[in-house]
Design a binder for these strands. Structure first.
Lengths: 199, 199, 199, 199
DNA sequence: TAATAACCGAGACGGTACGTCGTGTCTTTAA
DNA sequence: TTAAAGACACGACGTACCGTCTCGGTTATTA
């Protein structure tokens, strides 16, 4: 069954791993995902191609690990809870909008989202590792609001979070609209109107 | 400046054009977008490579045309308007969910969405030609409801439509969840609660 | 059966063919056969690797063709026949010895002889194309002498030629001795003693 | 100057040495010299690569040692001397022909002869260790005959031996002809005619 | 009605990258 | 302390496609 000899992870060169991540992120920003090549990453990292192939199955997997290792440092301790749900959401989503408009994030994120669309295996990892944790903090914040009686107890919070986040992501990914602060504010307002308790 | 000789479209072989579309759609379903090649399309279509390069700049463009020519046949008679907005939306979105779960649609649609993420030019065309018209019929239906007093007059209808469609597309594209009828129903309900007139 | 698509020889680029020959011969002289690579030949010739793989199965085959195309220009109109067999043989073998001591010939010839030892298919071509014609002119000259009564009519002329040529080639190929004029003279004398008519 | 750490030969593992020889000989027979690799030998021998690199500079050197250790067991008890030189030579050469037609000998012998053609250093060792001793016994036997008055006293015995052995080796190495008993007999007769005393 | 363009199928070409294999060096683990 | 195991940087392998470029051979106007 195990048709790959399974390399010995304990002997792995941390130096090379880091250099590969740096090279991959730098290159995807410089030349774009389509022109990102394993050969190019190896050359930039000063590493043999085999060292990449030994540990990752594809350039998408390399990029996912590289980007993941960066993103996870940033990763959220949760959303603020000032008691004003709408304000809290607007604050965070405005900041996120700014972040998504930053070129350094665009290339790898877009690349991974795109690669995931055509590769189910990859998309499971991408979603599980990078998107799901982000979504969860929104669900958690909504739950806190629900428990505080600010949201209707019958609401599906997961879908509520998606109503907030998906229009946001979609606009960015497909370039169907700008991620302005005005957009964020209107979105939060219209979504929350649907989630609040009925009179 | 005119660095492309601009082929004479009137002499174009309709036979070849069709064969290329058929080949592209068949192949993207069989081998996936990443392994779809111009050479492969040409061979399958019984066509010289140059015939493809003469008329399209990339495999994405070929696929977009091919898929577009299929999709546009199906397209837009508008949404039903029975007077019951929620029911109308559920009906159509349930049908769309079934369609998106159909394997024949998946490959080319995913491929184009993905290709668009990394290619701004392509994504403009993709969105403008295939996604925007679909969104517009929802906006139109919402506007009709708004004019009938079923929706709050201050609502941003474009964002309203996105609240409905983006969670739907996102789940499918990123495989973050199933497109079930139950999901569709809950989504419609929670969205419409936010759009209806305040008491 | 024919599992190779068989390239269309009529469209072949003569320019590339020549450039490949030149590059192969130059490189084998510069770096030796073991470090001769298809990639190196392609680069030096300004040619794609595939252009080499399309027409030849191995670097040995390329070199054989390249060397063959050079050698065949030189190729013998036959041995001199002054009536004095021993003198004729000495003249020609001395010249050949000088030629074999020339560095330009050494590399490709040695390389092909060596490659042939491990590759039966190749050695058949090498022998048939480059060695056999050379041997034949000796057999022909011996036959003329035999018909003139200078050699015993019962002699096996092919073996006679081998007695002359093999010690010569062997010394050179295996470096078991120098190819001096003195060696040539003694060899011719001792061989001819064995071939002349018995009293 | 001493740029190699010079491993301590006294601590050397005899077990590994043998295993490496066995593996090298087995593999050269199975896959041929070109596909013989150090890695392959190490794996087959159950030995680390470094153990090979520590003691030999190349795969040719390993094979030479391996083959040498086998050949030297067989070696040289000298040629028979029944008083009938022609008969003695025919006997031995016929036996040698049979031996050369044996597949087990072919691969390593051919491989080494070929490798030697392109590697002067190696060829000196190959010739000195494996070929020269074989030639010498012929020279010795011819000298005995010369001293017994069966051969002309002015004959160059080394060249005489080459007239006998080179056509033989050459036929085999370059596959220019079969090593039949008939060939051996004719060769011996024609050579000896040239070496015998003149009337 | 011939000539003269174009598109067309075909596929060779110079290239780039693929993913694999072997080289020779170096380090880690276990006897 | 030595040897197995094997990760590493490197370089070449032989293959697949890229996009460009002829090559005949149909069409399908234009002279």
């Amino acid at each position: 069954m195990a048709n790959k000899p399974a390399p010995d992870a304990s002997r792995r060169s941390e130096r090379s791993r880091r250099a590969i991540f740096d090279a991959a992120l730098a290159l995807v920003g410089e030349v774009g995902y389509d022109k990102l090549t394993i050969e190019g990453i190896a050359a930039r990292a000063g590493v043999g191609k085999q060292t990449i192939y030994r540990w990752w199955p594809s350039k998408a997997a390399v990029l996912l690990d590289a980007f993941g290792s960066v993103v996870e440092e940033y990763d959220q301790v949760g959303l603020p809870d000032t008691g004003d749900l709408a304000a809290d959401l607007k604050t965070v989503l405005r900041a996120t909008a700014d972040e998504f408009n930053d070129a350094a994030w665009q290339a790898p994120y877009r690349a991974l989202a795109a690669a995931g669309a055509n590769d189910e295996e990859l998309s499971r990892t991408f979603v599980g590792r990078l998107m799901e944790p982000g979504t969860r903090v929104y669900v958690d914040r909504l739950r806190a609001a629900q428990e505080a009686g600010e949201l209707d107890p019958d609401i599906d919070l997961r879908i509520g979070a998606e109503m907030l986040l998906s229009p946001f992501s979609q606009r960015w990914l497909m370039r169907t609209g700008e991620l302005t602060h005005a957009f964020v504010d209107t979105l939060v307002d219209q979504v929350l109107r649907g989630l609040r308790p009925r009179d």
